[in-house]
Amino acid sequence: MEAEVKKAVKISEVKCGIKAAIPIAVGYIPIAIAFGLIAKSSGIPNYISLLMSVIVFAGASQFVAVNLLMLGASPVELVMTTFILNLRHFLMSSSVSQRIEPGTSKKMLTLLSFGVTDESFALASTRKEQYLKRHFMLGLHFTAYFAWVLGTYIGLFLAAGLPEIIQNSMGIALYAMFIGILVPAVKDCPPVLRVALLAILINTLLHFVPVLNILSSGWNIIIATVLASAAGSVLYPQEVESHG
């Protein structure tokens, strides 16, 4: 009897994760379609492009990889760029490690960690509950992954190219989602609002100011995140401690 109740709870958590992932899927599918179309038009074999979405599962770095391949970059350059672009997930994964419900098995963590993306992290880490349920995370990560692979498949094998105006409009989707997550989370909490604004300021300086703008956007995001988070911990240790 108890086992059945536990199973029902697990299923409802997975469903909750799937539901929470819908905005991510809305953002991922058009971008993945665009990735499929671009990869196809650049002459990369379809099975390799699909494999990229299946085993790499990291949007920005996949676009960059296609771009670098067209420019004739070396294998080392491709792997290094991917590493640097995705190193920010190290920070996100460290942050999630403190929020995931205690008692989660290593095996489950090994599986869940594959699905840590900017989008799933943003959604999960700003949730109100103290601990993130592992089955919620499973539903969230699986749905986002499914949308990414499905979109890539559509782009490679089904899509004939969306009208440019639709493509451009969909480009805002993930950013709108980030805004939709960030704004309510920081609205009533000035310390974290300042942390977010400081990160924006640092990232903007690193991006535009001559002399500073020598690094890739991957490094810029890492530096801005580390500096702003550290500054927040120095300036507001108490407030932030009680948050989340």
Binding site: L182, A196, A199, I200, H243
Partner: peptide, 19 residues
């Protein structure tokens, strides 16, 4: 610990702007 808790807000800010 507080550094790790700040990361979501910092990373969201940095991801949004100027991208």
């Amino acid at each position: 610990k507080s550094f790790l808790r700040n990361i979501p807000f910092a990373v969201l800010g940095a991801l949004i702007f100027p991208g």
